[in-house]
């Protein structure tokens, strides 16, 4: 099997910094009264939603049209650029063979399992490092080093230790999902407004009560944005895992199609990954909106 390194290049984290500081700002400035203000833009209201969705569709529709015309005109041969109907046909063909649903489901299952496990681990480690200076000194350097290991470097080791079935893939995805949550939660807990923490202490809150009354609610926005990054990361690591060693899933569909010269299926797999990733992100976004209304 040929493997193009560019296809699975080590996944670097998307700009965590910007998003984290945005949500930190929210609660750093959030105590007190209206004069302190909240400069964050309000979440778009129902009235604008339709316009927002329509605007969001403009470019995809445009690209689809250009793609269609380019493919149908014959200017580009269809072994390089399949037409949209060819891609749809490839999907129908796979669906009829019973493979499409299986591939999608197995990939979604891997992402969700890996994401759940990784997020839980990231949450616990983040809480430890964020709250305890001792834990931070003990753990932070090690975790920083582990995070610096490119994702693909784990694959051979995981394959030897965990075999070739689900375990190594889910583990890899969990590793990928844990770090965004860890980083955002640890950072946010460390920066919870010390004034609020002191007020809590002054009113007799013990360690645990302080955690549940002041510290955790204060970092809810960061936890959510950490989870969102982790989910994106989970999809990245899924493809990395499936490209290398698998017999099912969308990443497998990609590499298998490359080996068989089925560019229509490659287009199908890429479009499906985009749609699925965006859908899961939108679902988390809905949850985020609800949480921020309660805690923001």
């Amino acid at each position: 099997m040929s493997f193009d390194e560019r296809g699975g290049a080590p996944v670097r984290r998307p700009s965590t910094e910007g998003r984290r500081s945005a949500s930190l700002f929210q609660f750093v400035s959030g105590y007190g009264y209206s004069a302190a203000g909240r400069d964050l833009p309000e979440v778009s209201r129902g009235r604008t939603t339709v316009t927002t969705i329509l605007l969001g569709l403009v470019l995809p529709v445009l690209i689809l049209a250009v793609w269609w015309v380019a493919a149908e005109s014959g200017a580009i041969p269809d072994y390089l650029l399949p037409s949209p109907p060819q891609v749809v046909a490839a999907g129908v063909e796979l669906a009829q063979a019973g493979l499409l649903a299986t591939y999608i489901l197995i990939s979604v299952q891997r992402v969700l399992l890996g994401f759940a496990i990784g997020a839980a681990i990231g949450l616990v480690l983040g809480a430890l490092v964020g709250l305890s200076p001792l834990a931070s000194k003990l753990l932070a350097p090690l975790l920083g080093a582990i995070r610096a290991v490119p994702s693909l470097a784990w694959v051979p080791l995981l394959t030897i230790y965990l075999g070739i079935y689900e375990e190594p893939k889910i583990t890899l995805i969990a590793i990928g999902a844990a770090f965004p949550v860890f980083t955002t939660v640890a950072g946010a807990l460390r920066h919870v407004d010390p004034h609020l923490v002191e007020a809590g202490q002054a009113f007799g809150l013990g360690r645990l009560a302080l955690l549940s009354t002041v510290q955790l609610p204060a970092v809810v926005p960061s936890i959510v944005s950490g989870l969102r990054l982790a989910l994106a990361q989970a999809w990245l690591f899924l493809v990395a895992a499936e490209l290398i060693a698998s017999s099912m899933g969308l990443g497998f569909l990609l590499i298998d199609s490359q080996n068989n010269g089925r560019i229509d299926r490659m287009f199908l797999a890429i479009i499906l990954l985009g749609v699925l990733g965006k859908t899961t992100d939108a679902l988390v976004g809905l949850g985020e909106r609800a949480l921020l209304q309660r805690w923001g």
Partner: peptide
């Protein structure tokens, strides 16, 4: 430490925003 017989109102209101 943080004696519960007294209560403080700080310079800033220090209210929990949520």
């Amino acid at each position: 430490p943080a004696d519960q017989r007294s209560a403080v109102a700080f310079q800033e209101p220090r209210l929990l925003p949520w």
